[in-house]
């Protein structure tokens, strides 16, 4: 009787099959089309497309600004999550609902709104102008837009972990003589770290792919404030499909490697802190 099913949970074949088919249809097939199209190019064509100075500058901006934005979100998202879970204040529910707004807002709306505020004649832009700080229509604008859209990821991944983290742990740390800072640094933060890392990765991935909000505020100056997704769109508009897919495939590979590294970091901390044994 080799056909006896030894698994307790039924439906392994069905769920695995469904997962694979679904993943293929939604993710793998469209993405492999990118690589297939790219593979029709010659090596020189490919290099010309992906290593042109203007394109390289856009990689730097996209990944640099995304990384920075995710880092900013990790810090302030943690603070926000902390404020929302640890304290009760009037209007807390409203603030909590506001967090999700960048999720729901069409990115173009976000871009226009941010541009209106940060432009020279906008509310905040007008204040910064005399100080010589220019946000809109330059790389700082890109950073602002990417920070805006990435915020909910960090807050929403850290929040539930913070809610589950009972104050008992901090009390225990205090009774053992730890200062508040030591309790945070040695007890609270390590517990939050995996969630924070996940939030960071999500915010980063989202920022890398962001297009709509950035193009309004960035100014899109070649070599200065042009993001990679815009390069791809530009190439498409010029009917340079191969060039577009070539740049896209480079982006894909970089993103994939970075996410893989973050996942590896996750697994490493999990092993080091006893969650994955």
């Amino acid at each position: 009787m080799s056909g006896v099913n030894k698994r307790v949970l039924p439906g392994f074949g069905l769920s695995l099959g469904f997962t694979l088919v679904y993943l293929s249809l939604i993710v793998l097939i469209p993405l492999s089309a990118v690589f297939l199209k790219t593979s029709t190019m010659s090596w020189d064509e490919f290099l010309n497309a992906v290593a042109a100075p203007r394109v390289v500058a856009s990689y730097k901006l996209t990944f640099g600004a995304s990384f920075l934005a995710a880092a900013i979100n990790a810090v302030f998202g943690l603070l926000l999550a902390w404020g929302l879970t640890r304290y009760t204040f009037p209007g807390r529910k409203i603030v909590d609902a506001l967090i999700d707004l960048p999720f729901a807002l069409p990115t173009a709306v976000a871009g226009i709104a941010l541009t209106a505020i940060y432009a020279k004649n906008g509310w905040i832009g007008a204040l910064l102008e005399p100080l010589g700080i220019k946000i809109a229509f330059g790389p700082p604008g890109v950073l602002v837009a990417l920070t805006f859209i990435g915020l909910p990821f960090v807050v929403r991944t850290v929040q539930p972990v913070l809610e589950d983290l009972e104050t008992e742990y901090e009390e225990a740390a205090a009774s053992l003589g730890a200062t508040r800072w030591q309790a945070f640094q040695r007890v609270v933060f390590p517990t939050l770290f995996p969630a924070l890392l996940t939030g960071f990765a999500l915010a980063f991935a989202r920022a890398v792919g962001e297009y709509g909000s950035v193009i309004f505020i960035a100014g899109n100056i070649p070599m200065v404030s042009e993001i990679t997704p815009l390069i791809i769109i530009t190439k498409l508009e010029q009917f340079d499909y191969k060039g577009a897919t070539a740049v896209a495939s480079v982006m894909l590979v970089i993103s994939f490697v970075l996410l893989l590294v973050i996942n590896g970091l996750q697994a490493w901390t999990a092993r080091r802190t006893g969650r994955a044994i």
């Binding site: 009972e166 008992e168 742990y169 225990a172 003589g177 802190t273």
Partner: peptide, 21 residues
């Protein structure tokens, strides 16, 4: 405060730090 009192406190649900050995 609790830090200065030098009392040992044992919690009902242990409150052991999960991420430490």
């Amino acid at each position: 405060d609790v830090r200065q009192r030098r009392v040992g406190f044992v919690f009902q649900h242990y409150a052991l730090f999960r991420h430490m050995t």
